[in-house]
């Protein structure tokens, strides 16, 4: 066992002392899809003392191309990702404590999960939950590492409370309706690149080498052979409601959250965006028509895929037919609408 981390200890910025620090730390990963499985494996192999992994979804065949902890048996048996990931991670490193939750994370769950956590790694697929992570991070003074990817493109940024800008400082508006891995595809090297950035930043934080953190917002496109970084330090806003002097953590307030409701007797869940938006139904139709059956009238767009039908209204509301399960409905919503 003493040999286990020898190569990592030989790496001077970590060393024996750094390894002991990694062993004493607790990391929370939200999401166990492509990024989450990559980061979880990286951190568990690196010897993190405790890892908490949370996901609401189950393993499907379309995950296996890039979600590195899962097997064909997991997909065949529709094993919840949090369950399948925990089993695999314990096989990889029996010395790490793995806590996993099959759970749809919102504000209340994050308030519980963040207790005694040293770092949050973002492996989610939408900005609703990222804005919640952002405000929880500020409220509880816990750093987090944003990461996302689609196609051959990826992006990452490390947010240290009271030091760097937060995600709300960087985003003048919350991105909506973007391309997702389920509409634009994704290649696994793009995932691995984001994971490499996130896990490296995580290791720096765990060994408390804050000086070495990357201050730039980094992005790359592996297919187009592009890579860039912008130093965004100056974007920290003193009047930011999430991290500024008079902070109110707006993303933790009920009114700002995406609202869901099960429509009784209809096998349908309604999802409403936190703020009124106007969906471009024509654009959405052209994206979704590659994925399933689409029909449209001036007021709404209907999209059928398998046993589910999503009906999108111009005002942003979406009805998910074919389920009574809010977590499943949210998964479908973010899969196709970002």
């Amino acid at each position: 066992m003493s040999e286990r981390y020898s190569r990592q200890e030989l790496f001077t910025p970590i060393g024996v002392d750094g390894q002991a620090k990694i062993r004493s730390k607790h990391v929370l990963i939200i999401g166990a899809g492509a990024l989450g499985t990559g980061s979880a494996e990286g951190l568990v192999r690196a010897g993190v003392g405790k890892l908490t992994l949370v996901d609401r979804d189950y393993v499907e065949w379309s995950n296996l191309q890039r979600q590195q902890l899962y097997s064909e048996a997991d997909a065949t048996n529709r094993i919840p990702k949090a369950v399948a990931a925990k089993k695999r991670l314990e096989d990889i490193n029996s010395d790490a404590e793995i806590e996993s939750h099959v759970m749809d994370v919102s504000v209340e769950e994050m308030e519980q999960l963040v207790n005694n956590v040293d770092l949050v790694v973002d492996a989610t697929d939408n900005f609703d939950i990222r804005m919640i992570i952002n405000d929880i991070s500020q409220k509880h003074n816990v750093p987090w590492v944003y990461g996302a990817c689609v196609g051959s493109y990826g992006i990452s940024y490390t947010i240290i409370p009271n030091k760097t800008p937060c995600l709300a400082c960087l985003l003048e508006s919350v991105p909506i309706g973007g391309l997702t891995c389920d509409t634009a595809g994704i290649i696994s090297p793009a995932v691995q690149m984001v994971v490499a950035y996130q896990v490296t930043e995580a290791l720096k934080i765990l060994v408390e080498d804050y000086e070495s953190l990357r201050s730039k917002l980094v992005s790359f496109d592996l297919w187009k052979n592009q890579q860039t970084g912008i130093n965004v330090d100056k974007m920290k806003k003193i009047n930011c409601l999430s991290c500024g002097d008079d902070r109110t953590y707006p993303n933790l307030a009920f009114s700002k959250r995406t609202k869901t409701a099960v429509l009784c007797g209809r096998d349908t869940v309604q999802i409403r965006t936190p703020n009124p938006i106007e969906r471009d139904l024509d654009k959405l139709a052209s994206i979704l028509s590659q994925q399933g059956k689409v029909s449209q009238n001036p007021y709404l767009l209907s999209f059928t895929k398998g046993r589910h039908r999503l009906v999108m209204f111009k005002d942003g509301r979406v009805l998910i037919h074919g389920t009574k399960d809010i977590a499943e409905a949210k998964t479908l919503y973010h899969r196709y609408l970002g």
Binding site: G31, G33, A34, L35, G36, D122, A123, T124, D125, N126, F127, R130, G147, A148, C149, V150, Y153, G154, I155, L170, L171, P175, G178, L179, T180, C181, A184, I186, V194, L217, S219, T228, G229, I230, H334, G338
Partner: peptide, 10 residues
């Protein structure tokens, strides 16, 4: 010019 756009997938 440096351009970085935000994406949500993961």
């Amino acid at each position: 010019i440096e351009l970085v756009h935000f994406v949500g997938g993961g």
